[in-house]
């Protein structure tokens, strides 16, 4: 019975993502069509002549009312049509799909790295206030949020590539000497493993480590700060006192009682962390010439390739909504109180 309730709540959560999706579609539409200036000129690109502009105008339906245009936009979206990129001539959707795994691989590895450091650091700092661990944690969190990601990346390149020579050149996902592993998932690390090609795996990881560290340093601060804060609060709560007064062992109190409760606020802030990470991802991709959707968007921005930029914004937003949904599901599974208050 309890699991049926959970399923129902999960269903409701998924439905709650719908308004966000609608909002995203409206905003991207407004950004492309309803702004001052002639969208046809934007979409045609700087090199277009009057005829091609007129053609684009017709193609986009710009000679019709806004409502009709919105209808056309929706129909195109439903067909997965995000328009053509003027710089590459390819459909935007195809390029995004090709480049997405690179961005996701980088983001996930970075989040994993930072969570592996931040959560233990936060717990240690909270259980030992005013010791060196605590001071370290506080320093890392304050310094971490002050670091511009692109600057961290450049520093790391300077130190580990130029000075020490430990890291390969910051040029994409794989050194030109290697062939990409056979395409299965699009994640080079996993594909290399599946192909049993350890040499390529090593090369992939070597390329990945600096950008992932850069991005990870950026997310470290908010995660560690949240973990420390919520652990401190939970450790001071009445029910931890009860558990201690009942003589439960330190481990039991710390993990079963304190940590699981402290995790809840951390999960809710993950949404914000994802938002920052996806943004910072763009900057990191530029620094390391990482062939993800972020660098695609930057290249498109430079040549005023609007269809590509808007396609990128839409893709990122949908990715973000999906991540938030995952967070909601995780929260629902961890907290029994969810859904009771409605």
């Amino acid at each position: 019975m309890a699991s049926a309730t959970k399923l129902r709540i999960l269903g409701q959560r998924s439905l709650q993502a719908l308004p966000a999706l609608v909002g995203i579609i409206i905003v991207t539409f407004v950004l492309t069509r309803a702004l001052p200036g002639d969208p046809a000129v934007y979409f045609a690109g700087p090199a277009a002549d009057a005829r091609s502009i007129a053609e684009i105008r017709k193609q986009l339906g710009l000679d019709r009312t806004l409502i009709e245009q919105f209808g056309i936009y929706l129909r195109q979206l439903a067909q997965g049509d995000l328009g053509q990129s003027i710089s590459t001539g390819q459909p935007v959707i195809k390029e995004l799909v090709n480049r997405l795994p690179a961005s996701i691989e980088l983001t996930l590895v970075a989040l994993l790295l930072s969570a592996l450091v931040a959560i233990p650091l936060g717990i240690l700092a909270a259980t030992r206030p005013d010791t060196w661990v605590d001071h370290l944690c506080r320093f890392v969190t304050t310094a971490g949020v002050s670091l511009p990601t692109f600057f961290t990346g450049i520093l790391l390149v300077y130190v580990f590539y130029y000075l020490l020579g430990w890291a390969p050149a910051p040029m994409g996902r794989l050194n030109v000497m290697y062939l990409s592993p056979p395409h299965v998932t699009g994640f080079f690390t996993i594909d290399a493993l599946l192909a049993g090609d350890l040499e390529t795996l090593r090369a992939t990881l070597a390329q990945l480590i600096l950008p992932a560290t850069t991005l990870g340093l950026f997310t470290l601060a908010p995660l560690a700060r949240m973990t420390r804060g919520s652990m401190l609060q939970v450790l001071g709560s009445d029910f931890v006192r009860t558990a201690r007064a009942a003589g439960l062992s330190g481990r039991k109190v710390l993990f079963t009682y304190a940590f699981r409760n402290a995790l809840l606020p951390v999960i809710t802030t993950l949404g914000m962390v994802f938002s920052f990470t996806l943004g910072a991802n763009v900057l990191v991709e530029k620094v390391f010439a990482w062939p993800g959707i972020g660098s695609y968007a930057i290249e498109a921005l430079v040549v005023s390739d609007y269809a590509a930029v808007q396609g990128f914004v839409l893709a990122m937003a949908i990715l973000f909504v999906a991540l938030n949904l995952v967070i909601d599901v995780a929260y629902t599974l961890v907290d029994p109180r969810v859904g009771i208050e409605g």
């Binding site: 709560s237 009445d238 029910f239 009860t242 007064a245 009942a246 003589g247 699981r260 029994p336």
Partner: peptide, 19 residues
């Protein structure tokens, strides 16, 4: 604690692990 001496508190709802 708990075996020889145990304790009950005020605000019972907050004194139990909520999850």
């Amino acid at each position: 604690r708990g075996r020889e001496i145990s304790m009950i508190f005020q605000n019972p709802r907050a004194a139990l692990n909520p999850i």
